[in-house]
Structures are given as structure tokens and as C-alpha cells.
Design a binder for these strands. Structure first.
Lengths: 333, 333
DNA sequence: CTGAAAGCGCTTACAG
DNA sequence: CTGAAAGCGCTTACAG
């Protein structure tokens, strides 16, 4: 790679000091028209671009945001990321995406980016605040998305999972279902805990059995496996509430494989409203999460915090709504 | 935020020079055991993390890679990104994802990151090399993924789209289909050009009409619209080759809506093999792109280039294979 | 094995 | 309006 042009080169060619070049770039109105033209010409000639590292080191900030995602291969995150990215760019920030695989070590490595002044703030999609690998850490400016970190007061943007689950169950009850099962996520997952709690409460309020729960791991395959287990029971449920869309698709696959129909024999509800939920066959009744908006909002909050505004003390709860489509129908008689 | 700990603080507490602290961190074996312990203790006490910007400025590199993606909301990219990320991390690089929305201005902004020494290299998923907004640029170390940039010799990792399309069409012909249509992408898109060319050539070789092509924009909706148009013709095709999975799903949706069946009346082939292709109903026959491998390979090539090895002069072509599933079947009699 | 010093490429008070 | 100089926090020859 050819030697990079520095501010020094530009200054020499323009016949001015480096301070003047810097000013011509940063606050042009402070520089005389004549000088400015010389500098512009020199920049043009050399193709100079300021070294951002040097600038940042001097300015003590980076305009960079680290986004921690447990699994970037999961389509649930991509639209949230797009929302984050949009607001970030609009405010002159760039985003750095860190794939953590739920590995605390990797999470801390990325968080160190912020500690190491490589980034100004953190966006957490992984449901866990960095703990400094056991070493004490002062948390950098951050916002938590989607997840809820218990016993913390970190700024948070999310939906009300409990409430959304209640809506879903109510929909099934209104359709006449009495035997309603759940395919939930891993029991340690706070999202699933909230969703199951909301579902259970609504079932109990209606005098129905709330204990038919099989746990999966959010994957399509685990949804299928869970459904298989439910079908083994002599009196299988007539409706299933799944903690995400992938598991719902796996469940539907399995129901069809068993020679039953959706929603004729069994109704299925998902959660998230992925892009593919609507084109699935049957198109999936599911809880719509405003994913893009979640990303936009969270990034907006972080921008405010970085601008010195006080962080919101209450979680920002965005609306989620049940999208009724073709995978749910009246309970079979 | 409290004042950050610097190397100076650590040095003072440990009672050594900053040079020694730096060495204790970077090449511990050069430092005496005794001194090393003192430094370690001071670091422990202060929670010191080196300022990466200062280090990078000094070292003149960043260990950061910029990945340009046209649309991060598209699930096609997420698995490629996961592959990139994995190899990057394994080699001590971090990745910065830039969402370009196919906007050349944004592409150049991100590319400037590399010019501005904020990143060491570039990974291009957007099918276009930065042009410096008209200003001359010397391209940074980069690798092109999936796409093919005509008239350039940039290092490239991709599949053979032409060949893959041939396989797909051959599969349909073997099933007895004679009226085979294409739902292609935007005519300017090089991917679609290659795929259409391969398809057309195979059709012609079999003495079939290769001119039944409707263009979409890779979205589900455009696939549906294209299919609607094909169905309007009195003699609609018995098989459709789509340039990606989303359009294939849109097409299938439309076929079902018209009261026809897949593959009973019309067979449909997609391209890419997204995660959801397999659970779609009918599960989609499609061309499998080894997306994770593409990401891993490209990042590997970039690591080599950054390590000073010569860039590959020939494109690296990875195998794509037709996954025959339930959306294709014998031509109706 | 260790320290003093130069220098990475900028920005920004401070003088003039 | 402009320049000389300090300094951001490191790393790394160079001496000792």
C-alpha cells in the first residue's frame, strides 16, 4: 500500500500550517477564502482523508457504537439492526456488530472495545450486561433491547411480553379452545419466562389447565420435537402457543406430518412476526414485534444519553399486537 | 464517566515506567517476574484497559474489517456474516458492518473508514467497488463476495451462478417439463444475468422456449406479481425457475391462490436455500449456496492478503448444489 | 531487564 | 486569520 497522505503533506503543498489545514476542514468559515481554496486544491490533488484514529484519539471519542447480538444468523435480529443502523447513521455514528454466541467471554471482549475507547456506547441484544469477566467494571453508556435484565435499572427498550402472551391466549380461548399447550423457550430465558407467565395467568383465569408446557430452544427442530411430544399424548391439545415463530413452524410441520391439519385439528400461534411468518402456509397467526422501531428507539435513546441527557429510568415499552392470520381457527367440535 | 485509567496511572502505581507497563502487557517474557507482578497488581487494582485507538495509531493498524452489505435486513446475508465473523475473530479481527442500501454515497462513506485508517480491509457484498465519489481512489485490501464485478480482477469468492442455473433447469427438463418460465431479478443485477444466461442456454439446448422471463426485484411481493402475470397467459408454464427463494415463495403463494397446486400443476425452483426454504410448504427445491462457507472463505482470503500474501488472481468458486425437495415434480400430463 | 524519548496524525487553546 | 506548540495514550528502537 502506498504511503498514506497525512495532514502534513497537504499543509506543505498548500503552503500553510497543519493547524490551518485542520481548521479548513473542521470550521471552514474561520479560514480566509484564499487559504481555504489553496487547502482544498491540495486535498483534491492528494486525495487526502483525515486519519480518524488520530482525530478520535485527540478528541477522545469515536462515534462508534458496539451492538452485541447473540446470533447474527438469526433473522429476528436483522431488522432490528437495520433500525439501529438507520438512526446511528443519521446521527453520525457507525455501528460495530459483535456476535457473542451467548459466550460471556466474547461479550466482555466486545465490551472492552468500549472500555478501550474504541466505541462510545453499547447496545445489548443479548440479555446480559458485561460483567468484566469477574473484574469490577463501570458500565459504559448502554441500552438494553428486547430483553429485560432483572434486578437492574439499565435503560431498556422492549415490548411487554407478558401482555402480548395474554392476548395470544385470549384469542385462542375466544375461538373455543380448552386444551391449550405451550411450546416455550429455554426455562432460563427471561423472554420465555415472561411469555409463559402471561399465558399461564390467562389460562388459569379461564379455569383451564396451564401446565401443558414443553420447552424448546427457539429452533425449528426443537419446535417439531416438542410438537411430537404433545401429539404422543392421547388427548393432544387443540391449540398451541409457541414462544417464537421458528418453533411454531416446526410444530406446524410436525402436525402436518402426523396427517392432521392447521388450524382444522390444531391451531398454532407464533411470536415475533418474522418476514416469513406471513408467507408460511398456513400464514402464521403471531405476535408482531415492531422490530425496526425497537432498533430505532433504542439507538435514539443511546444518542440522547451520549449527548448528556439523563437516561430514562423506566423501560420504554413499545406496542406489540397479535396478527391474526390463517394458522388459528375455531376449536374442533 | 469517571476519568479513564491510562498507562501512566498504572506505571505510577506499579512504580515503573510506562514503557515497562507496555512491555508487561505486550511481551511479558521480556520483563522480570518481579516487575511483571507489580504491573499485574496495578492493572488489577485500577481495572486498566489499554486505549485501542492510541495503540492502533501507534501501530498503524486497526484489526478492524468493514463489511459492506446492501441490506442487512435480508436474511440471505446473516449466515454469510456469521461465517465472516467467525474467521475474523479467530484471527483477531473485528468486523464493522455497513448497511449501504445500494447507495453509492453510503458505500463510499464506509470505504473511507478504511482510507481513514479506521479499518484494515474491506469485504464487499454489494457488488460494487467504491469509486471515491468520483475522486481517484487506490482501493484498500478487499475481497468481493457472492457478486462478480465485471471488468475487474478483484479477489472474489462466489458460486458459479450460470452453472447452478443450468442444473436447476436440467432438473425440470428431466421431470418432463417443456414450458419453463423464469422469474428473474432486476435486469441490471449481475447475479440474475448469470443465472438467466445459464437457464436460457440449457433451455435452448433442449429445444425449448427460453424467452418466457418476467423480472422481479427479489422480494416476495414481486415474485407473486410476476407469477400473476405468468398465470394470465392462456398457456401458463408448468415450471418456474426463480432467481431467489423469496420470489419463489411469492410465486407459490400466488399459484395456491389461483386454486392450483405445487408441484401438481406447476413446479417451482428457488435459489439460495434460505433457512426457511426447507420448512416452507411445499418445502422448496432450490439451489443451495454454502453461505457460511462463502463468508469464512472470503474472510480467510482477506486475512491472507493483510498478512502480505499475494491476492488470488482467479475467483474462488465454491460448489452450489441443487436441493431437490417437494416443490418440483413431474410435468402434468 | 528497564527507562527516556521520539513519534503515530491529528485538534485546539494560546499568541500574535 | 494564522502558526507554533502541547498533548491525546500508546509502542518501540535506542542506550544503558
Amino acid at each position: 500500500m502506498a504511503q498514506k497522505t497525512t495532514i502534513e503533506d497537504v499543509a506543505r503543498i498548500a503552503g500553510v500550517s497543519i493547524a490551518t489545514v485542520s481548521r479548513a476542514l473542521g470550521k471552514p468559515d474561520v479560514v480566509s477564502r484564499d487559504t481555504r481554496d489553496k487547502v482544498t486544491a491540495a486535498i483534491e490533488q492528494t486525495g487526502y482523508t483525515a486519519n480518524a484514529m488520530a482525530r478520535n484519539l485527540r478528541r477522545q471519542k469515536t462515534r462508534m457504537i458496539v451492538v452485541l447480538v447473540p446470533n447474527i444468523g438469526n433473522p429476528f435480529f436483522s431488522e432490528i439492526l437495520a433500525g439501529i443502523e438507520e438512526v446511528a447513521t443519521a446521527n453520525g455514528y457507525n455501528i460495530l456488530i459483535g456476535n457473542t454466541d451467548n459466550d460471556p467471554v466474547r461479550e466482555n471482549n466486545f465490551a472492552n472495545f468500549v472500555q478501550g475507547n474504541q466505541a462510545d456506547g453499547l447496545l445489548l441484544l443479548n440479555g446480559r450486561a458485561p460483567d468484566g469477566n469477574g473484574r469490577a467494571v463501570k458500565l459504559p453508556p448502554l441500552v438494553v433491547l428486547c430483553e429485560r435484565i432483572p434486578d437492574s435499572e439499565l435503560p431498556t427498550v422492549r415490548i411487554d411480553n407478558d401482555l402480548a402472551a395474554q392476548d395470544a391466549i385470549r384469542h385462542l380461548i375466544e375461538l373455543g379452545h380448552r386444551r391449550i399447550a405451550q411450546i416455550a423457550g429455554p426455562p432460563v430465558n427471561i423472554l420465555t419466562v415472561d411469555r409463559s407467565r402471561g399465558a399461564a395467568r390467562t389460562l388459569q383465569a379461564a379455569g383451564l389447565d396451564a401446565d401443558v408446557v414443553v420447552n424448546g430452544d427457539f429452533s425449528i427442530a426443537s419446535g417439531a420435537a416438542a410438537m411430537r411430544e404433545l401429539l404422543r399424548r392421547t388427548e393432544h391439545p387443540t391449540a398451541v402457543f409457541c414462544s417464537n415463530d421458528e418453533m411454531a413452524m416446526g410444530a406446524i410441520q410436525e402436525i402436518k406430518a402426523a396427517g392432521l391439519t392447521v388450524p382444522g385439528d390444531i391451531s398454532v400461534i407464533g411470536f415475533d412476526d418474522l418476514t416469513f411468518a406471513e408467507v408460511y402456509d398456513p400464514s402464521l397467526t403471531t405476535v408482531h414485534q415492531p422490530r425496526r422501531l425497537i432498533g430505532e428507539t433504542a439507538m435514539g435513546v443511546l444518542v440522547d444519553i451520549l449527548a448528556g441527557k439523563p437516561a430514562p429510568t423506566e423501560p420504554i415499552v413499545l406496542g406489540a399486537e397479535l396478527r391474526v392470520r390463517a394458522s388459528t381457527g375455531p376449536a374442533p367440535v
